[in-house]
Simulated scan of single mutants.
Amino acid sequence: MFYWLLKYVVLGPVLKCLFRPDVEGLHHVPAAGPVILACNHLSFSDSIFTPLLVKRRVTFVAKAEYFTGKGIKGWLMRQFFVSTGTIPVDRSGGKAARAALDTQLRVLRSGNIAGIYPEGTRSPDGRLYRGKTGVARLALESGAPVVPVALLNTDEIQPTGRLIPSIKRVRMRFGAPLDFSRYADKLGDRFVERAVTDEIMYELMTLTGREYVDVYASSLKTAVVAPTPAPAPEASRSPGV
């Protein structure tokens, strides 16, 4: 009930009035049954707009620290994540990725929508980066279709480091569902999981029109703060090429 009130009575109407969403292809999201929304990741606000603009409940996972803040700021952040259907996950330690996938599998097995960012982190410069294969494992293990979701300008609305977003029309594009049932017996095959991930990233590249970089965004971010330079990324390539 609290989630419904915040989404449909409080946050949803306010955000739609302020940001006047321009959304294409929303009909591609099935009206029922398990679905994976695979989104590119440009801004913190991606986790605001996607759940509030899709009619069904969309569940993302976020690190548990977002739910444990103190004071007014901590309370507001908790309420925001609750209102968008986000689930806290302990992402410390080596089993963090598996814990996040297990949480999303439970969402899908309940017939609901799981949201995931295949890049694993926000793009450092607006380009699209190599996808991690967790999205493929989620698709193969659940059997759910994957709907690619392109966030087109959220990096302009709320660039990394900016607390208060600019009031600007948000633009999103939903692609046709991708069916990977032909690989149902290939779970655990790393070559198949890479191929599935690359197919998803290719669709995101097409939908966003953004340049694709064939390295992990997290590796690039690490290289920025590391004392030794990393090899230059290969740009302007299609995923898996």
Rank of each mutant, 00 (worst) to 15 (best):
G120C: 05
R182I: 09
S110P: 03
V213F: 09
Y183H: 13
S142H: 11
V213G: 06
Y129E: 00
G188C: 09
D155C: 15
L15F: 11
M1T: 12
S83C: 09
V241D: 09
N40C: 04
V35T: 09
E156F: 13
V9T: 02
K221E: 14
E65H: 12
T59F: 07
E211I: 01
I48Y: 05
I72K: 13
A217R: 02
F80K: 06
R78S: 09
T208H: 04
E141S: 13
A62L: 13
V135Q: 07
F60E: 00
V23E: 03
V23Q: 01
I48P: 01
A64G: 10
L52R: 01
E119D: 01
W4A: 03
L5T: 03
L5R: 06
S83P: 00
R210N: 02
S110R: 14
D90T: 09
K73W: 08
S218P: 10
S47K: 12
E119V: 03
L6S: 03
I87A: 04
T133M: 10
F180V: 05
L108V: 11
G12M: 08
T86Q: 06
G134M: 08
Y8C: 08
R98E: 14
R106Q: 10
R127N: 10
V146N: 00
V196E: 03
R56L: 00
M205W: 06
L18I: 04
I167Y: 12
